[in-house]
Design a binder for these strands. Structure first.
Lengths: 142, 142
DNA sequence: GTACGTGCAAAGGTTTTGCATTACA
DNA sequence: TGTAATGCAAAACCTTTGCACGTAC
């Protein structure tokens, strides 16, 4: 943690190390508040401002992805490798999809844009919600 | 407009017709505030609450998509047919991509989810921003 | 020692809500 | 006429910001 922070040009404070520690190998795509709650358990004096500051700094350095997949709030993903997401329309759980898709746009369709990346969101019902038959909407932009 | 609203089970009020009129064939993916500003020009007495109520009602009826592609606010898309989006990392403009991709997930990758839909976001630089050389970040979740 | 980071509280932006009034059907 | 919709204002969220104090390097 200590080294990682210095490597990307940030000072290694205990608060930042606690945040990184919580995010390491975390695949739950937590929100800022969830990160704050979790870190505050072991570090009660930490403030939300510090959490937001740290998340912004990590994102700036390319060490954290800010996911825009939840209409209510931003979610964060410490896995910065290109990958996609699967969102349960029932419980809103977000799972990682590590699978390569061919997503080439014909020049005509790209409309003169210089394409630099992509991200696929899949919508569905997770096994747990499928059993509960709590299914609601389906389709795009759940 | 009048008929369309009744068809989906909503009362045809002038406010709603003005909102629908603005959204019809609109491909700018406007935010609630942009819709409010536009409609208020011709209908000064309309309130933001009515705009939000109407957008929620239309979304509920499946006649409007709520896009979660802008971290700052929700954007709306009157085109409810499945399609994808191309986002300019420079000016944040959102363009429609009408192109069919094969996005089948092997059962193993889908992890027991029942997949019901998908949505692809492409990131890039639009022609206008490319000329201005204002390019900033690239990649996922711009 | 100095620049950077922290914590608190206040403020900003978006969206929701309560409630009295209005108007569609 | 009855139910649904409107409009206003207040409030609820999430996130950002200003500033004095603290601390990593």
């Amino acid at each position: 943690m200590n080294r990682m922070l210095k490597d990307i040009g940030l000072k290694a404070t205990p608060q930042r190390m606690a945040i990184l520690d919580f995010l390491k190998d975390n695949t739950s795509h937590p929100s800022a508040e969830e990160i704050y709650e979790a870190v505050a358990k072991r570090f009660p004096s930490i403030s939300v401002a510090t959490v937001y500051n740290t998340l912004a700094a990590l994102k700036d350095k390319g060490s954290l992805l800010e996911l825009t997949i939840d209409p209510a709030k931003k979610r964060y993903d410490p896995d910065t490798r290109p990958h996609h997401h699967l969102i349960c329309l029932g419980c809103k759980r977000v799972s990682d999809i590590v699978y390569d898709f061919v997503l080439d746009l014909p020049g005509q369709v790209a409309g003169g844009y210089q394409i630099t990346g992509n991200h696929v969101e899949f919508y569905g019902i997770c096994p747990a919600c499928g059993q509960n038959k709590d299914q609601k909407k389906t389709g795009q932009e759940g």
